[in-house]
Write a protein that binds this DNA or RNA. Structure first.
Lengths: 210, 210
DNA sequence: GTAAAATGAGTGAACGCTCACTTTTTATTT
DNA sequence: AAATAAAAAGTGAGCGTTCACTCATTTTAC
């Protein structure tokens, strides 16, 4: 059994995914050829088909493994000991730094995926799940703040969360097309100010003794 | 000179564009074939090429004629007699109603265009111009409000404008993939509340005599 | 030695675009 | 008003190319 160790096999699979991501980001999904991916990864075309059954399956795997982690990621990076407001602010910061520093290309991958959405129901479902997951988490943070009395009582948690997620993806869109860096920083600041201004509870009618 | 009247020729050109838009929305740009567009428009393939030199030129024309009008449109629909705040609020409403009622498919066209962005510099430039135009107009509204004393003096006009435009396109993205209608309405409300909360000038230190 | 892994030329289908040809429209002549 | 000519509008089979995927064969790892 000249089988290769499972670790080796997995690392080669990841190499193919890396190459595919590069190619998809450079040319988009439709224009990327299997030959491109094979050349970039150093494999032959035939070898690719021992790891993935179809070209579209490579794209789906990329989405599943590298794009659907958003919700878990936020959950992990915001600690329980923070106040809801600190967690919210941290989410915004995580997003900004991810866009600028950590994974600047992931945004473009998202964009390619969006384009495919129209043609592929599976991709669409994956993105919808991602949207729902992010909203759910952010909304839960807002609700915690309301219950703790930090935020106004009538704050619409779901709407706030949907706004933040939409804003994030809108920014990703423009960022991936070359929006200047300076916008991003100011947008972060103003977003936090707007959030705070909205969430701040109205001055209490009966002021507790100072 | 058996030329047909210019009006007829233009209406046939528009018919081709209509058909192309339908097809692009249904299958995306790359998967749409020239045959598809020909069939849908009722012309033969050859006839199409008397109106547009290439398939990609059809897409570019759609962008130019049906997607780049955003800035002018907002300018026209917000009257000079309104306060800056009323104009801003109206811009948000125009966007929402356009998405839900007037041109629900234009959003999806934008999405297809975004996808092509990676491959076509011309498309990219068109979208960048659109972004810049929208921001410029919204920012000018904010600046007017600041000068009139309606808004806080340190409001960051450009950042607010960029946030609104990004948010709009982010919403368009999710909308085109099937976000429930109810979100849209609540997001409109909360967006306006957040805007107002941010722009409201802090209570004046020296209250003018009531 | 052997079985899994990898190769890459080959296959058939699909697509953007062309061009030799037909049809339609208008201007002119009778 | 009818006949004619000229030119633009429209047609669609076909061309050249590209691409996802296959499979007979070779290489590699144990």
């Amino acid at each position: 059994m000249p089988k290769v160790t499972e670790g080796h096999r997995e690392s080669r699979r990841q190499a193919i995914l890396d190459a595919a991501q590069d190619v998809f980001l450079g040319k988009g999904y439709q224009l990327a050829t299997v030959d491109d991916i094979a050349t970039k990864s150093g494999f032959s075309v035939g070898a690719l088909y021992r790891y993935f059954p179809t070209k579209s399956d490579i794209m789906l795997t990329l989405l599943e493994e590298r794009l659907s982690r958003g919700p878990e990621l936020l959950r992990r990076l915001t600690s329980d000991r923070e106040t809801p407001w600190e967690s919210l602010a941290r989410c915004v910061d995580i997003f900004v730094s991810a866009l600028r520093v950590r994974h600047p290309s992931t945004g473009r991958l998202l964009l390619v995926a969006w384009g495919e959405t129209l043609q592929d129901g599976t991709v669409r479902q994956g993105l919808q799940r991602r949207f729902g997951g992010l909203i759910e988490y952010l909304a839960s943070l807002v609700r915690q703040g309301v219950e703790a009395g930090d935020f106004r009582r009538d704050a619409d948690a779901t709407a706030v969360a949907a706004i933040l997620v939409s804003l994030a993806d809108g920014v990703t869109l423009y960022w991936s097309v070359g929006t200047p860096d300076v916008y991003l920083h100011d947008m972060r600041t103003v977003t936090l100010q707007m959030l705070k201004a909205y969430l701040k509870p109205p001055a209490a009618r009966e002021e507790p003794s100072v």
